[in-house]
Amino acid sequence: MVQFLLRRLLVALLVSVTVLTFAFALTRLSGDLAISIAGPNATANDIEVVRKAYGLDQPLITQFFSWIGRAMVGDFGQSYFYRERVSTLIFSRLPITLTLGLVGLGIAVSVALPLGVISALREGRPIDRVISLVALVGQAMPSFWLALVLMITLGLNLGWLPISGTGTWQHFVMPGIVLSFSAIPALLRLTRSGMIDAMAADYIRTARAKGLSRMSIVLKHAARNAAMPVVSIAAVQLGFMLGGSIVIETVFALHGVGFLAWESISKNDFPTVQAVVLLLAVIYTLLTLGADLLNALLDPRLRAQ
């Protein structure tokens, strides 16, 4: 178990370092930063001043290590656009994105898992086909379009939910629903196929031969074995939701990290871009690590590795 943990930690660390390097490299590859910071009307002299002031005249390797060194202690520098510390900027927006992501995942899981299980137990029957069809339609639906439809129906026509902003928990319901649509099909299909495989396994026949109740066979013996791929994909989906909610945050005017990423990219605010990329990478890595640990709890064979 300890070995398993150490190995996973090492992998997580390597992934983080790689992403760190890429985040740094990509921003430097998008043109001369000094020119874009100085603005369109800057003279050659201004640009040189800017270059010196931001340390862009240093060799790349020096810039890289000084950035990493500061990033380690949470100092991502000053945002060029907001004139605020990047860390303050990000941490003021992170709760919104986290709330949105967790609400989205919560909705996705509570819809996809039961439907997946029902689908698997009724494999090939009408209810299974209907569920698969609905999942397919859900997957094919563009999220901005779904967002607008929900805003018009639930928000404007019925007046049940607020259509933009972050004031109350109700504000997160609609964006959460839209976000969950991206995760439901994958979770549902994995749950379904995992349950179908598990229910056909020899140990299920044993469980039936033991006279266990249907409930215990499905929820205890089959579900635990079907859960592992679902846990892994759920972690990836959550990561995707946290990093990929740009459209939804924009449509619903939720000023979260996704919205910030979009803004800073379009404004060439590269300290912010770097920090956001790094943050999302770390979150991704942590989620994967969390999924691995959860799987190790579910499957004793993993612990033995």
Partner: peptide, 20 residues
């Protein structure tokens, strides 16, 4: 089943649930 009549199978490797 499991109470008054019980059954064992040909596949001992896969007949037990790996998770418990």
């Amino acid at each position: 089943r499991g109470d008054r009549m019980a059954m064992i199978f040909q596949e001992p490797m896969t007949s037990l649930n790996p998770a418990y």
